[in-house]
Design a protein around this nucleic acid. Structure first.
Lengths: 195, 195
DNA sequence: TTTTCAGAACAGACCGGTCAGTCTGTTGCA
DNA sequence: TGCAACAGACTGACCGGTCTGTTCTGAAAA
């Protein structure tokens, strides 16, 4: 296993944290599922909290990869790229393993303000919004920051809605709303600076 | 205390559940904070799960009351009423005690599908959307169900965003997006059925 | 090629604390 | 007298985390 063991433990822990919840998942369960021992786990992750933070970092990296891959194969039309983000999440939601957003869930489970978990969630939230703002700026809308807030809230809302009401497929509705908002923002930009 | 004791225990438990998280809050902590005993708590609530469900029911009733009060004193303009819902949440978010939506948080903490907690969260989510749909229908929009989904997702998204990034005041941005979407839906209705 | 040895991983008992929930007994009020 | 509430010890399970000791492996040394 060598250096792989650390990754293996993290993979197993991440899956359990996501599917069952973080507080619900005990260290013993992780150790058992990973087929390893507590000593090995605590060698690589000094505490459960460290493991949780690693889980969030892993989730962020994974999601970033998925989104970048989708954007890379999307058309160059910036508006399409914005909508492609919704398509990514729609696909993720369709999986039976879907259990909401890891960061929203972690934020709900760890109430203590300023905790590393809350901090990681905040950083992801802001980073994701900035990604949308970049795409919105490329689309040439009037106020990219504002539109990015609108769109990120639509996505977050759709994620929690599907989590609470499985099968309601809200990401498609969120995408429709996004189209309206993007169209509006583009129209505003055109009106403000006519050729 | 008499019959009041049950209510008192629920009040204290509800506050702790909301502020600290449900799994984090032990029965002993509730008993101590309420100044009562375990025997009394378990007399009125046979299990902690029952107490959690009661907490959610209480939260639903409380929120319904707040929204109804706001709608009652809002103008008769149906569009204003829709926006007044956003004002309610903006006020709630401004409180330092704000810690997100009790139902979203509970849904994140209790992963088991079909559990009473998940069920209560689903019912609330759908009930809230229906309220928005009713208001949207009164506003005479083309597809009230669709608009209600959009607006409920904006609100949910703003709630989790404020939870993860305190002080980012996203409900105002959500309200702006709502105005655009409402305007769009009304314009569609006018276009579909011209005088 | 065989021996040796260090580090990595396994195995599992163990710690104090907390969990939800139960039990016995006492106090106080109507 | 009877019921509601208090008081608090108690159970068994589980929590995160530590500790001792064994087994495995792979590379250096002979």
């Amino acid at each position: 296993m060598a250096r792989n063991l650390q990754q293996h433990i993290l993979d197993v822990a991440s899956e359990l944290f996501y599917s069952q919840g973080i507080k619900t998942t005990g260290v013993d369960a992780i150790v058992k599922a990973a087929g390893t021992t507590k000593m090995s786990l605590y060698k690589y992750f000094p505490s459960k909290d460290d493991l949780v933070v690693a889980h969030l970092n892993k989730s962020r990296a994974k999601l970033q990869g998925i989104i970048e891959a989708e954007l890379a194969q999307a058309t160059d039309d910036p508006q399409r790229k914005l909508l492609a983000v919704f398509d990514v999440f729609e696909r993720l939601q369709a999986s039976p393993a879907f259990r909401g957003c890891p960061f929203i869930n972690a934020s709900a489970e760890f109430a203590e303000i300023g905790s590393p978990v809350q901090q990681a969630a905040a950083e992801f939230s802001e980073g994701f919004r900035r990604l949308l703002a970049t795409l919105a700026a490329e689309a040439g809308v009037r106020d990219p920051d504002n539109l990015s807030k609108h769109l990120s809230m639509l996505i977050a809302g759709a994620l929690v809605r599907e989590q609470m009401q499985r099968g309601s497929a809200p990401m498609r509705a969120a995408r429709e709303a996004a189209e309206i908002l993007i169209g509006h923002a583009c129209a505003q930009a055109r009106a403000a600076e006519p050729a």
